[in-house]
């Protein structure tokens, strides 16, 4: 059987639904000597702000059973370097969907950065991060309240000519309410979820492991929660969803799509295995055969 892995996301043709998640794949070119990036359906670039940022002091990484915590704090070279250097450099070795991931500390900053990303010919889609748990102003505060999330959505939609996905935080009581607010404010799609706010303590030093004290928890441990949120939101909203959170195997990709995801982002798994995405793509056709799936997009939202 010839397997069709392609999906259509807001009119964009993706050769498959597998996309490295923002922050786990640099600006793409860092992995270009590791495998053929053109195998990927899309690449979500490192979260970018208006100005260059160093982020948080180290240690920024901690381990947990079946996962990890990070408190990088949006280290990035700034939006001008993204559109002038990073996106064009990736386009030279990658023909698929390039996703800019934009963060901010004010509505004006979100709008300015998204407008620049939208004007960048190499960028196909814009993912707006209203859910970074590792910065102390802005970031997640925009994504934990429906009115703020809607305000960001309206501000960026007013200046973008390309599809806008809002990346939501799972650190909320009712993610469906926030998803609906974004949809009503004009979002073209939703990415969910970002990391869960967590913590580890060094029991010998009696101090948090992370210099930032808390960090975002990701990895296979969060997969069932992320899947549940994707399922709830996909059934409550009519805009496409990119599923993200603990995806590590071809089976996880199929589960996310059955729950309602049109595309699937792979995050922490890239950090432990740089070949995670191509290995998932190697395994998908066989799993599709086993499940009698001819076209992968036929399973979207079937559960």
């Amino acid at each position: 059987m010839v397997n069709d892995l392609s999906v259509t996301l807001c009119g964009l043709h993706l050769r498959n639904p597998v996309i490295p998640a923002s922050g786990t794949f640099g600006f793409g070119v860092e992995l270009s000597d590791c495998f053929d990036l053109n195998r990927l359906g899309g690449i979500s670039l490192k979260g970018t702000t208006r100005e260059a940022r160093y982020g948080n002091p180290t240690p920024r990484i901690a381990e947990a059973p079946a996962g990890m915590l990070n408190a990088v704090g949006l280290e990035n070279p700034g939006i001008d370097v993204l559109v002038r250097e990073k996106a064009p450099a990736l386009r030279k070795c990658y023909g698929g969907c390039i996703i800019a991931n934009i963060s901010g500390f004010s509505l004006e900053e979100y709008a300015e950065c998204c407008a620049k990303a939208s004007d960048c010919p190499e960028i196909d889609l814009i993912e707006v991060n209203v859910s970074c748990p590792n910065v102390h102003a802005g970031g997640m505060t925009f994504g934990t309240d429906p009115h703020s999330a809607a305000a960001v959505t309206r501000a960026v939609k007013a200046v973008c000519r390309k599809p806008v996905f809002i990346k939501l935080s799972p650190n909320v009581t009712d993610i469906v309410a926030i998803a609906r607010a974004c949809e009503d404010a004009g979002a073209d799609g939703l990415t969910l979820v970002n990391t869960f706010l967590g913590m580890r303590i060094d029991i010998r030093r009696r101090q948090p492991v992370l210099a930032n004290k808390t960090g975002g928890f990701s990895g296979p441990a969060i997969f069932p929660i992320a899947l549940r949120m994707v399922w709830q939101v996909a059934h409550a909203c009519s805009i496409p969803v990119m599923g993200c959170g603990g995806v590590a195997t071809a089976r996880d990709v199929v589960e996310m799509m059955m729950a309602g995801a049109t595309a699937v982002e792979v995050g922490a798994e890239n950090l432990r295995n740089p070949l995670a995405c191509p290995e998932i793509l190697d395994a998908l056709p066989e799993l599709m055969d086993e499940l009698n799936i001819n076209r992968l997009q036929d399973i979207i939202g079937t559960v």
């Binding site: 640099g26 860092e30 990484i61 990070n70 890239n270 950090l271």
Partner: peptide, 12 residues
């Protein structure tokens, strides 16, 4: 370190 290969910014 996270990735150890320059793409996660875990050790900057």
């Amino acid at each position: 370190m996270g990735c150890g290969a320059g793409y996660c910014a875990g050790c900057s």
